[in-house]
């Protein structure tokens, strides 16, 4: 976790909408990034130093701004850059956040424009419906995640920790 120009804590991340990749720093409260994401008091995610790329050329920066807000409903998924954020996003060590328990279960899912592979940490029997229940949060964390652009399968991204918007999920498959 870093600090914003106004002294607030920040988390470095890559955020993906249907057509854009946005790299920047999200402003987070005392509860950390996941709490900010799940906060019902704001429909927006505030960010600083954002760099915007199109998903067909995700390395090229088409615009950059010092501040921005993003509608949470419009976010497909977010990759937290653990290497830069340190333990701020959940105390991750060797790719597994310490707060999670249970066993890793491999999943494959789709959101608009992307396919995502990763692992969910699950205790006991895995029930897909329960995983997607909105009452348990709007975003589902995945560990050891890899996302590929559906129309540009050569372009892929990997991250220790990814948060996928449950309402944007089209297909959700479970291994085993």
């Amino acid at each position: 976790m870093g600090t914003s120009r106004y002294g607030r804590a920040t988390a470095d991340l890559d955020l993906f909408t249907d057509a854009y990749r946005i790299t920047g720093r999200a402003l987070v409260g005392a509860g950390g990034f996941q709490a900010e994401l799940e906060s019902s008091s704001s429909s927006y995610l505030e960010m600083e130093d954002v760099y915007i790329s199109r998903i067909n050329q995700p390395g090229e920066i088409v615009a950059s701004y010092p501040t921005a807000v993003f509608r949470k409903d419009n976010i497909n998924f977010i990759m937290v850059q653990e290497k830069r954020s340190g333990s701020g996003a959940g105390g991750a060590q060797f790719g597994r956040p310490l707060f999670t328990r249970g066993r890793p279960v491999a999943v494959f899912l789709t959101v608009p424009s992307f396919e995502i592979r990763g692992e969910v940490q699950q205790e006991g029997k895995v029930v897909l419906r329960e995983l997607l229940a909105k009452s348990l949060g709007q975003f589902q964390p995945l560990q050891a995640a890899q996302a590929s652009a559906s129309l540009y399968p050569d372009i892929s991204y990997s991250s220790d920790l990814l948060f996928v918007h449950k309402e944007r999920i089209g297909i959700f498959c479970l291994a085993g």
């Binding site: 995700p58 390395g59 850059q81 830069r84 892929s156 991204y157 990997s158």
Partner: peptide
């Protein structure tokens, strides 16, 4: 750069850089 994905490395090299390192 703090952009650490493979696509960022490719873009860096195709833009004319000789090498790429991710932060930190």
């Amino acid at each position: 750069t703090a952009r650490t994905q493979e696509v960022d490395r490719q873009t860096a090299l195709s833009s004319g850089a000789d090498d790429y390192l991710s932060k930190p």
